[in-house]
């Protein structure tokens, strides 16, 4: 069945709201407006203003409120319009949600789910285009998800709500209108494993969220040249699934990481370090990465395009690795 990423998210939330009275959705414009990305369109009429709760522009306040509600026995889904605005709520996520169970000696879990849009590509300029997933993936105590496929958009929320601890879900803003085939496997979505989306023997392209599709595009271009790239969708940014990464790199002996975050201090850097620690002797070439240029994401289309990781840069990186071998 063909379905859009947006519709998959919508179905996942609908299912959760219908199944469990403890679940409620809170955020800016989730109700009357229908969600800034239209994910919760129609929910207000169906579930009412108590459970589809429009919040004022108070990211710190309403994210902290969701955390408190989770402590109080509810299962809140809190939507932050974009990762850029989530910085206003970072204190509550990092200093409260992530630490409470550990710091209380196991007494207080925080079963909150935080959803937010991320990434560039829509000419929204620097304050609406950043990819800060790695800021969250840095923090122990939270699980960080980056659904890239309609299967994960449909399936990950159920697992996230079943998790007794905080989960942060990043939805790449370019993916909402993307159509995909919903496979029967969506119900098996877990919060621990990476997934090989395309098998290949020459190089592993490691990506997450929006860059998964840049990697897929690069793999198609490379296939035309006779280079078979494996595409690995990380899915879960914390904890990272080292086993799947190392198994793939062990087979292909080369890796390129495609990461929309800035290069310095990036998740790509962390994965490179892990490959170095765990699979160094399996490698035929140094691990490479394609990241966003180290500038605020600009407005002008050609400039924005140049700042973000693109398929041709991935293709070039692969060619360079193979030339070195």
């Amino acid at each position: 069945m063909k379905i859009t990423y947006r519709e998959a998210l919508r179905q996942a939330m609908h299912e959760a709201l219908a199944a469990d009275s403890r679940v409620f959705l809170m955020g800016e414009d989730v109700g009357k407006y229908g969600g800034s990305y239209a994910v919760s369109k129609g929910f207000l009429a169906e579930f009412g203003p108590e459970r589809i709760r429009d919040a004022p522009l108070s990211e710190l306040g309403f994210v902290g409120t969701a955390i408190g509600a989770a402590l109080g026995g509810m299962r809140p889904i809190v939507e932050i319009m974009t990762v850029n605005f989530s910085l206003l709520a970072l204190d509550q996520i990092v200093n409260t949600a992530a630490v409470y169970r550990h710091m209380s000696g196991g007494q207080f879990s925080v079963p909150v789910v935080v959803r937010m849009a991320t990434g560039g590509g829509r000419q929204l300029a620097a304050q609406h285009s950043h990819s800060l997933e790695n800021w969250y993936a840095h923090v122990p105590g939270i699980t960080v998800l980056a659904p890239a496929t309609v299967d994960d958009a449909r399936g990950m929320l159920r697992a996230a709500l079943a998790d007794p601890d905080p989960v942060v879900i990043f939805e790449h803003a370019m993916l909402y209108p993307m159509e995909g085939e919903l496979s029967p496997d969506w119900e098996k979505a877990d919060l621990r494993t990476a997934k090989i989306l395309r098998a290949g023997r020459d190089v592993t392209l490691i990506a997450y969220g929006g860059t998964v599709w840049k990697a897929q595009e690069a793999a198609r271009q490379l296939a035309a040249e006779g280079i078979e790239a494996e595409v690995l969708d990380l899915r879960v940014l914390r904890p990272l699934d080292d086993a799947t990464i190392m198994a793939s790199v062990g087979r292909t002996r080369r890796a390129v990481i495609v990461d929309e975050g800035w290069r310095t201090g990036s998740l790509a850097g962390e994965i490179m370090a892990r490959i170095m620690e765990q699979a160094f002797y399996e490698l035929d070439a140094p691990v490479a990465r394609v990241c966003s240029a180290e500038v605020p994401i600009p407005y002008a289309k050609h400039m924005e395009g140049a700042a973000l990781p693109q398929a041709p840069a991935v293709v070039a990186a692969v060619r360079q690795l193979l030339a070195k071998a």
């Binding site: 409620f24 108590e50 459970r51 710190l60 306040g61 309403f62 994210v63 902290g64 409120t65 969701a66 955390i67 408190g68 509600a69 989770a70 402590l71 109080g72 026995g73 509810m74 809140p76 204190d91 509550q92 200093n95 409260t96």
Partner: peptide
């Protein structure tokens, strides 16, 4: 965290109300 407990308390109260 100075002020950090306030949103938390609001959330506990919201859970109670709901």
């Amino acid at each position: 965290i100075v002020g950090g407990g306030l949103p938390l308390a609001v959330g506990l109260a919201l859970a109670e109300q709901m």
